[in-house]
Design a protein around this nucleic acid. Structure first.
Lengths: 250, 250
DNA sequence: GGTTGAAAAGTTGTCAGGCAAATTTTCGTT
DNA sequence: AACGAAAATTTGCCTGACAACTTTTCAACC
């Protein structure tokens, strides 16, 4: 890293930014999952071949970004993504804002589905199919579908080839797909019915996009999201009971 | 800062986070405005009575947050909020992204107009009328209407009483209303025709919302935004000439 | 007096070593 | 096996130094 003769490399960015980005990538990619302890400063200076100052500055950045938590004498630990928001997602107030979010998402994603049907490239089409298959795989494996559900919606937004649609979804994060996580904690039979209905709705959307049928894609997405709103209202109407159950559990 | 006997203060946060926060506050409060040069590291170590390490880590954080730009040999400078986007708004690429933005805004604002018709309070209704009157006043005074145009759209979004609609508009900023600024520089007669058409379209929206007529509000907003899209395409088609005029001016 | 180029001074980026404070691990004693 | 002390480890901060870069100063020349 002290090689003279690479001044142009130096101008492209500092060692601190480089180490920061690499550590950040490792955290976000799951190489260091939440709760994991990063290598010590001494180890990082060796593995990145930089001084401890550079490592400390990089960690200071990640710390300020609330990606990590540094404990003196112990180590640097990856923080969970949004600890407070996880709990908040399960209380009554957040369920209300889920409906508001759906109210905004509905016109946007209906438009996105229609545009995706008109504009998707073959690669984007395959990507959408992949995402749908991944949801189905998660359902069959009994794993949470939230991330893969989000990925499908994101792939559709990207197939509009107007970056603003994907940007909007990303800005909401996986909270844009909140209902699955609430439902994962209810009874199994009702859950399977829900998952297969969800999958059927996704399939309709995906086929319409694949067929390049704008109107069918819009209608399928509209039905899907209106269905999500209804399912949420049912949760709210049955949700008081379920939350009482939780209160007794906690 | 090296005072022993204050361990509880130490546990509340590090020196780095303290210096970071104070510098950030100074930047955001305008004590160091965009373009200003921060005191040198040596000066900051003295004024905060900390080591250079702490100062550097704090600046590394601010740098990563894109609040400052550190130039080796020169100093640390406060970055403007979004310098590139101001210039970008006036070039060809940004005009393209204006259409993309309109593509996203259209379904959202149609929905917002419909919801505003259903949900606006009398105070919100008055607010919408005020905003429309303000646009007209700007037109008659020959002043730019961009900010007041934005304020009308924002007031309509707020009248949905779902904060996400207003949040979205705010996140785009006044760039959500880009066309007025480009048009302010074209010839006056065409401009007055445009303004009065714009005002008529606004009036239709506002009256529908005031009448609580969801469908009329949707239709009026749809016509308005589709009209904006068309006007923009005309700009693009005639815009090459006008930008040539600009090129000769610069 | 104005211009040019070199030297000096100033500033950020990085390295290295050290000590303080806190935590974890190891080891000896009961 | 349990407990406590010592040793080892780790982060927080300090200090000094040099490299790379920029800005300012100053001397020489026209």
């Amino acid at each position: 890293m002290n090689e003279q003769g690479q001044p142009s490399v130096r101008r492209k960015g500092t060692l601190v930014s480089k180490v920061t980005d690499e550590l950040r990538d490792q955290i976000l990619s799951g190489a260091f999952p939440p709760g994991a302890r990063l290598p010590s400063e001494a180890q990082l200076t060796q593995s990145y071949n930089v001084s401890r100052t550079v490592v400390r500055e990089a960690i200071a950045v990640l710390r300020a970004d609330l990606l990590v938590d540094a404990r003196q004498g112990s180590g640097v630990y990856v923080r969970p993504p949004s600890p407070a928001s996880v709990d908040k997602r399960l209380d009554r107030e957040s369920v209300t804002s889920v409906l508001e979010l759906l109210e905004i998402r509905t016109p946007l994603e209906i438009e996105a589905a229609g545009l995706a049907a008109l504009r998707r490239s073959p690669a984007q089409e395959e990507r959408i199919f992949d995402c749908q298959a991944r949801i189905l795989a998660c359902i069959e494996a009994g794993r949470p579908i939230r991330d893969s559900d989000f990925a499908l919606h994101l792939a559709i937004s990207e197939a509009t080839n107007n970056p603003g649609f994907a940007e909007f979804l990303k800005s909401q994060g996986v909270s844009a797909i909140p209902q699955a996580e609430i439902v994962t904690e209810s009874d199994q039979a009702r859950q399977m019915v829900y998952f297969h209905q969800l999958n059927a709705e996704h399939e309709k959307i995906v086929l319409a996009i694949s067929n390049g049928d704008e109107e069918a894609a819009r209608e399928a997405m509209r039905a899907h999201l209106k269905g999500s709103q209804e399912r949420h209202r049912q949760l709210l109407r049955g949700g008081l009971l379920r939350q009482d159950g939780k209160a007794s559990r906690s």
